[in-house]
Computed example of a mutant assay.
Amino acid sequence: MLRSYLRLVLFTAGLLCGVQIPGFVSDYGKRVEAHLIEAQQSFKGYTATAQQFFKGDVQALIQHYRSSDDPVFRSDADTIANLMQRTQILDREWLAMQGPWYAKAWHVAVFADDDIRRETYNGYTWQVLMSPDVIAWGIVSALVLALVIESVFLLLGWVVNGGRRRKPTFERDWR
């Protein structure tokens, strides 16, 4: 009986953890979009300057700043280059978050920007959303967790018993 309750608790824990995945992925995507908008807004003035004087070539603007005799302009060249690089990285992150649900989840788990993922985790509030995809995530996560844990315990039992199965004993009453 205790074993059955432990299985239910394990399944419920897996379910509750699994329903967090879509919410976390969604929050990560929203943060990426917010950072991208902020970076684009900060970079807008430089792109306008590059458009006006260098036919839209921001690299030419950066090179112009670097070749200046003014140390302030040389310093700003690095700032512009960093801002351009950050905008490109965030744009790639945003594009990755436009794919199907499994691609987004895999991206957040494996390839996500570490700073934004950590920021999302630190600001994440646990929630239980009720939509079909969230419910599916929860059930699949619960089943996988229960299967893995149960398999580990069965494997440990098999190792402890030396690879032999216990023969069931049948009590027979011949009287």
Rank of each mutant, 00 (worst) to 15 (best):
E171N: 09
A136R: 11
G162A: 08
I135R: 00
E38N: 11
A96R: 15
M97L: 10
F54H: 08
P71E: 11
K167Y: 09
V32N: 00
V19P: 03
G23D: 12
F24N: 12
G99W: 07
G138P: 04
L147N: 03
D114Y: 12
Y65Q: 08
N82G: 15
A105C: 11
V32I: 04
E171T: 06
I149T: 04
V144I: 15
A136N: 05
W101T: 14
R165T: 14
I21V: 15
P168D: 14
F11V: 08
L10N: 02
P100A: 13
L95D: 15
L129Y: 12
Y46R: 04
W158V: 03
T120L: 02
A50N: 11
I135A: 01
I89C: 00
V144S: 03
I62D: 01
Q127H: 14
Q52R: 11
L15Q: 02
F73K: 14
V110M: 10
I37V: 15
F24T: 06
M130C: 06
E93F: 02
W94P: 00
A81E: 13
S68N: 08
H107A: 02
A146T: 15
V25I: 14
F153M: 06
F53T: 12
E33C: 00
D173H: 08
R3H: 10
F53A: 05
I116T: 07
M1A: 07
D57R: 00
G157R: 12
C17T: 12
W94C: 01
G99N: 11
A112G: 01
L83I: 07
A105W: 13
L10I: 12
S67C: 01
R164I: 08
P22G: 05
N161P: 00
Y65P: 14
L10E: 03
F24C: 04
L154W: 06
M97D: 13
A39W: 05
T49N: 03
W106S: 04
T47I: 05
W126G: 01
I149Q: 03
P132D: 13
D69I: 04
I116R: 03
G123L: 05
W174A: 09
Y124N: 10
L2Q: 06
D133E: 10
S4K: 11
E38I: 02
M130H: 07
F111L: 06
G162W: 04
D57S: 01
D133I: 10
T169K: 14
A39T: 06
R31T: 08
G162C: 03
E38K: 04
R7A: 07
G123I: 05
D133C: 02
D114P: 06
L129V: 13
A136T: 14
V140Y: 09
D70E: 14
K167H: 12
A105V: 15
I37L: 14
E38V: 02
L145R: 03
L129W: 05
V134L: 02
V32Q: 00
A60K: 08
T79S: 07
G14N: 02
L16A: 06
R92D: 01
P100G: 08
L8P: 00
R74W: 10
R92G: 00
N122L: 11
F54P: 00
F24I: 10
N82R: 15
R172D: 13
G157S: 10
M130W: 15
V110E: 12
S26R: 11
F43H: 13
R66D: 11
W158F: 10
M84G: 03
R166F: 05
A39M: 05
H64N: 14
V19D: 03
R7T: 08
D114L: 09
L147Y: 07
A112F: 07
V58W: 09
